[in-house]
Design a binder for these strands. Structure first.
Lengths: 248, 248
DNA sequence: GATCGAAGGCCGGAAGACCAAACCTTTTCT
DNA sequence: AGAAAAGGTTTGGTCTTCCGGCCTTCGATC
């Protein structure tokens, strides 16, 4: 016992991780709401033309006051992501021609590697849990998305859209809301990073082959194979970024 | 092209993930600070008796006002986690006999499975990236921790402490601050969950065998083996919880 | 055609969180 | 004795958020 305590004591003498004292990011409810809805729109999870829940209902679901929600909606209206119509039968809708994405910010670029690391973690977790929990219907739907993906190899915008649906759909198949949220955030960050770089069809084709293998592994409940494929899939993107971004 | 667009349109007709409209948790700076420091102390990352940075420096590092930091420190003082001495050479220190952990809250228990899912993801990501990036020195230090772990098999408190150091240490070896932060949060949540359940030495012994295999795999840069071992390691805990908590 | 109801669009006050910048008190080191 | 370094205190102001009521629009229904 003395021996154990001594080892613990020496182990604890190590300096604490500096992450403990890193800045706290206290996002306001307003910012977080703009982010949530804006990301969902950018990713196409809220389709162009689709209607958002009524303000009086949505603020309840988001757990914020209606005035705060309206601030967020005003911001999204001004940035051209949504528009509102009044009167009965009116509502807030996702704009049809989405505004062009804005270029990645400096701090976004500075943290791109950590963003990829975090994404890798989420994707691997999703791969394992989807292999355990995905049901037949989930996989059939994902196969549809994969087919869409293969048909869109020449149109990067359409491709990216379907790609997101596939990854988020896999997260949904884990039945874990938290992983869906994390996946959404991660894909939003990735979109910011890769939106401006070229993706030749050959790259997309190889990506599609991985999607196929991934879904096959999940269908066979082969978690480890799913992880291997997913790891290669994600790190392929990372290698592309490494060649184009600073610090690569 | 028409074909592709049509498929995308049908794919987007699906209902958006309800996670999009889930409540926003806008934690205040005060809450987040209490959480960060409190978790670091509970996990032993800030050792009993060790000194925190001076208030005037710490508030700068955390990016908050001193008065806000003091609110957090006051809360931690009242809960018995830290104490302060005045005058030159004084400071804020981690209390030596730590207050007993409080039992897991209801919502904590309600979300235990999602908590485990998220932890699994982070641990898998850490396993892969540590296998790629860990350096010799990191691994030697982790071997030390593993030895501590094996000597502490009869004392769950000491065991848990070293266990945390091992997992967080592995995260540090990825050189990704964000993963360190996520790992810390995940381990904090796990501590809340498992603090109150019995862990017979046989379970800890089997856990230790997995730690050994994990470190060996990382040392050999065998990412896939590291993932497999880590997955089994994490899911073993999950199975224990499943037998004891509601909804298992 | 009048009315109802559901939706977005306002406004004003109250409460609280956060910040900034002082100043005070205690203790130790020089 | 005094300077320095730490925690402790006070004050005032800004910004965010909430609550709740009210207004305006306009399709649906009677």
């Amino acid at each position: 016992m003395d021996e154990a305590e001594e080892r613990i004591a020496t182990a604890n003498t190590l300096t604490p991780p500096e992450a403990v004292f890193a800045p706290v990011r206290s996002q306001t409810a307003f910012e977080e709401t703009v982010d949530r809805l804006g990301t969902a729109i950018k990713l196409g999870l809220l389709a162009p033309g689709s209607q958002l829940p009524a303000e009086r209902e949505l603020c309840g679901r988001l757990g914020i006051a209606r005035s705060t929600l309206r601030q967020a909606l005003t911001a999204l209206t001004q940035s051209g992501h949504v528009f509102a119509t009044r009167g009965r039968g009116g509502g807030t809708f996702v704009s049809d021609p989405q505004p062009p994405a804005d270029p990645p910010s400096a701090e976004m670029l500075a943290q791109w590697r950590e963003t990829c690391d975090q994404r890798l973690a989420i994707e691997l977790g999703v791969a394992v849990l989807a292999a355990e929990r995905a049901e037949r219907g989930d996989l059939d739907a994902l196969d549809d998305v994969a087919r869409t993906l293969e048909a869109a190899i020449e149109d990067f915008t359409a491709y990216r859209q379907a790609d997101i649906r596939l990854h988020v759909g896999l997260a949904e198949a884990t039945r874990s809301d938290r992983l869906v949220r994390d996946m959404t955030e991660a894909q939003g960050a990735m979109t910011d990073l890769i939106g401006y770089i070229a993706h030749p069809p050959t790259v997309l084709a190889s990506s599609n082959a991985q999607h196929r293998q991934l879904l096959a592994a999940v269908r066979e409940r082969d978690a480890m194979r799913a992880v291997r494929v997913m790891s290669e899939h994600v790190q392929a993107t990372e290698h592309i970024l490494a060649g184009l971004l600073p610090g690569g």
